[in-house]
Design a protein around this nucleic acid. Structure first.
Lengths: 137, 137
DNA sequence: TATACGATCTACAGCTACTGTAGGTTCAAG
DNA sequence: CTTGAACCTACAGTAGCTGTAGATCGTATA
């Protein structure tokens, strides 16, 4: 029987976050002591660990909900799980590509400025100037 | 004299977003027509373009506020602007590093699963298992 | 057994950076 | 003058938490 604080420490989750997961139905309503405090079983610890690990991998709460639903039906095909993971991988890769473009522009911007006064600052110029920017979309 | 819609189209910004920027003090309160509609000058167009371009580069609204303040004092040293840009570059690089670690784990996870049934799915196992994960922080 | 004090409780507000909606008004083209 | 797109305000909602206030609970120690 674990208190919410213990659960939090074991999984690196804030107490409020656990209550929030309960509120949105991602975590089940646990048993309570006579005084009304939450008490958890190991199964709930595992579930929370799953959620947190998935969050660390960047899965949205919606995706995690889907994964949890799927894992409740162990006889079904795991193609759907693969699809969720693939989608996440694509998202991560798209974000990397975007950030790498940003990095290049930021580096160029910073490298170009050797001014002293704000008035001559190339960084501001680049930010003001829309010619050579990323906004093709 | 530009309407808010025109401003939006020229900068790729939704009308509500412009009003939001005004509300939080990032854009000035523009003049109005007799009927109460906003009318902008070219200076405001430039300011909005600056904001949007900076947003595209991942700067937070707070950072942009700082950059705009600095650029209002063109005689000051541009070292502060450089610092803001450097900080942003570090943030971007940190995010890239993090996402690259995620990509590796996601790829490994997906590559390892050749199961049919959810019950045997390696992806879920990896997500459940905290042994080999990223959570050193 | 009494007490102290940290942990927990509920309920709600706040964060970032917008986006969407409802219900009404204004502008400009035809 | 009419029509319809664009505009107005005000407010709620999004994700994923985090923080606060004020009250109650649980347990280790005296």
């Amino acid at each position: 029987m674990l208190s919410i604080g213990t659960l939090g420490k074991r999984t690196g989750t804030k107490v409020q976050t656990i209550r929030y997961y309960e509120q949105i139905g991602l975590m089940p309503e646990p048993g309570r002591t006579e005084g009304g405090q939450r008490r958890y079983e190991d199964a709930e610890l595992d579930r929370l660990a799953f959620i947190r690990h998935s969050r660390e991998l960047g899965f949205s709460l919606e995706a995690i909900r889907e994964l949890l639903d799927l894992s409740d039906n162990p006889e079904r095909s795991c193609a759907q799980i693969d699809a969720v993971a693939q989608k996440q991988l694509h998202k991560v890769e798209a974000r990397i590509a975007r950030l790498e473009a940003l990095r290049i522009e930021l580096r160029r911007m910073i490298g170009e400025c050797h001014a002293d006064r704000v008035a001559d600052c190339r960084i501001l110029e680049v930010l003001r100037d829309h010619e050579e920017c990323l906004s093709e979309h």
